[in-house]
Design a protein around this nucleic acid. Structure first.
Lengths: 180, 180
DNA sequence: GCCTACATGTAAATAGTTACATGATTGA
DNA sequence: TCAATCATGTAACTATTTACATGTAGGC
């Protein structure tokens, strides 16, 4: 399981921790996390909410009409269990945290994440990227036989991007440590 | 259909255009295209080869033993139809060409791609990325209310990466034009 | 003798997208 | 009145991963 839904629960708990929201609004907020090109579809969101209802992490309230008399909405809010779950997740550092999706979501809720854990997450991500970059570098060093020159150029560019992210993380880690 | 298998056929045709290969070897070559972290699994590769056999794009030959007496392998090679298909794909510029995966694969076979088409592909990709970056920039300009500062930082970094790719493409386009 | 790489596949489970269905409200 | 956005979902399809199954050859 290295799917989006893994980080989705965390993200939803995080969003709802700031106050109750309905599905449509949750989707929009998710867009600010994932960016404008990877919108969360309703057919993923609603079943996920149902799962979380079953697990008693959230509760639903039917709102017949909002202040501006809209269509009735279903408003979700965290239960005590949900809040506890979020807290424990905030303090944990699962291996998934260092993957692309996982990291992005963790980072989106970095403000409410305990200080010392922030550094751990950044360091883990850093380690992971350094390892990957190393592999790509070796790979690049050994292939250039017969392979299209353009492809090599492309891979070099990709490696540079990875290196830039590493540098960025290093800056982040430094500034986090300073604020400790 | 915006899946990997869309570009997969192109990639396989491209690889086989240089000479006959067997499945296992094709997988390894694909790794040099997609990079070391997105290996093509056999359960995608073999059915794809079967599809291409049915479409008469490739032919199979059973090799009982290679020069070094290995297990019998199935060697695939392009048919005349397959070669024609590849040629026509090389000269075409489908919209898919400008997507991440599609572009990567097209780029991997840029050498054998007709000169004028290379520029078209690069320009299309450039246009696409500029549009996307513009959207992200606007998005970034309007959200900073209440959103976690860390997240904003992350998005800014992502935008910079996109901008770097745009610059890279511009360099590529310039050097392609020069060689025309 | 065991581990790794070679070599070819199938089956089942999971994940994800797209199309469909329905209906309210708001602004041009 | 017409399109866009709000709002909640289901069904069908497509894609991808993981586990299974089987066997060979070479190096340590």
């Amino acid at each position: 399981m290295r799917s989006r839904s893994e980080s989705l629960e965390f993200a939803l708990l995080g969003l709802l921790s700031q106050g109750p929201l309905h599905g449509y609004e949750l989707r929009k907020r998710m867009a600010t996390i994932y960016g404008p090109f990877r919108a969360l579809s309703f057919s993923v969101l609603y079943p996920q909410l149902r799962k979380m209802l079953l697990a008693k992490l959230i509760e639903e309230t039917f709102t017949s009409a909002g202040g501006l008399s809209r269509r009735s909405r279903i408003v979700y809010e965290l239960t005590k269990t949900g809040r506890e779950k979020l807290d424990s997740l905030m303090q944990s550092v699962s291996p998934d945290t260092f993957e692309d999706e996982g990291f992005e979501v963790r980072f989106a809720f970095f403000g409410p994440t305990p200080r010392n854990n922030r550094v751990k997450i950044l360091e883990g991500r850093h380690r992971k990227l350094v390892e990957k970059a190393e592999i790509v570098r070796k790979d690049l060093a050994k292939i250039p036989e017969g392979i299209d020159t353009y492809l090599v150029e492309w891979r070099r560019h990709s490696l540079e991007s990875a290196e830039r992210e590493i540098t960025w993380l290093e800056k982040m880690i430094k500034s986090e440590r300073k604020s400790l």
